[in-house]
Design a binder for these strands. Sequence first.
DNA 1: ACTTAATAGGAGTATATACACGCAATATGG
DNA 2: CCATATTGCGTGTATATACTCCTATTAAGT
Lengths: 166, 166
Amino acid sequence: MTEKEVEKKLSSLFGDDSDVCFSSEFCLSVARSCAAYNLRRASRLVTQAFDQALKPSGLKITQFSLLVAFLLSPESNLAQLAKGLGMDRTTLSRNLRLLEDNGLVRTTPGEDRREQKVEITSQGKTAVLQAMPLWHKAQDRVVGILGEEKWAAMAKDLRIMASNLK
Amino acid sequence: MTEKEVEKKLSSLFGDDSDVCFSSEFCLSVARSCAAYNLRRASRLVTQAFDQALKPSGLKITQFSLLVAFLLSPESNLAQLAKGLGMDRTTLSRNLRLLEDNGLVRTTPGEDRREQKVEITSQGKTAVLQAMPLWHKAQDRVVGILGEEKWAAMAKDLRIMASNLK
DNA sequence: ACTTAATAGGAGTATATACACGCAATATGG
DNA sequence: CCATATTGCGTGTATATACTCCTATTAAGT
């Protein structure tokens, strides 16, 4: 089947919409409005900014965030943590193993022997302390783009979106 | 060196701040304000929502976005596209290869024989057409959380952040 | 107590992402 | 014209992410 025949078949299947669908205007409106595209792009760029800033500490922003999360919820098991982080359980497991291999956290079985409890090590604490001023610098830079107020509003809305999708 | 000795060393290195730094209050304020954490979490959850919705089409939201981007900028080479997408050049290359392996796009060398031009195939167009109503459904669901207006404002701010970090 | 849920977590596989490095083609300065 | 710089892109490696299936442990129902 030639390309033109396919085009005709598409037209018969989807009607005149198929032309509209491939128009620059339509594609542009999809790209500009798409929640996933806009969030993912910003997320990529912000992640890069933080990772570059954190480089001297040897941590990536994902790892820094995890360590702070462990400090915040030392009693949680992995599933609870994953839920709070809006992250798949298995993703957390794997990110965790990396931190463990680097000696930043320690995992111990809970009383319920199915559970794993996570403890931050002194090495992990040192890393967080080293990273903290670097984090501040990146945070100031990124937040400075919109200004404190707008960022606070966006952060609030991001949390609302997250809590509605969990 | 025991854990306690490490704690003491940390205190002498960083002063009283090290205690403050590990307090729940402080960690909570970091987690609540961190641009990377908040964006990444929302991005993960929104991505999951779109991926689930798009499942019947066989596309992930990343692939759908790329196809729409190719439709929008058929003249761009990979580096230009990557810049527009706020994505590393090599990431785009690899995501592209996947689409090519699945027959959704075709790459041809440009006149400048260093360049690769990307063309969407008829199979790719069919996939986009199939995915479009599914995308709409996910988009409506996600945007509905905040409402059209707030989402439009957030999308605008996300673009501002992105353009300032590129 | 025994059977059956339900729960906590890991392993296999696949995609998404980026950095460091290297190669080929083009552009540029002399 | 040639040497060098620049540009466009691929590969190797590492991390981040999630889905599907699997095992071990505990909870619940009878």
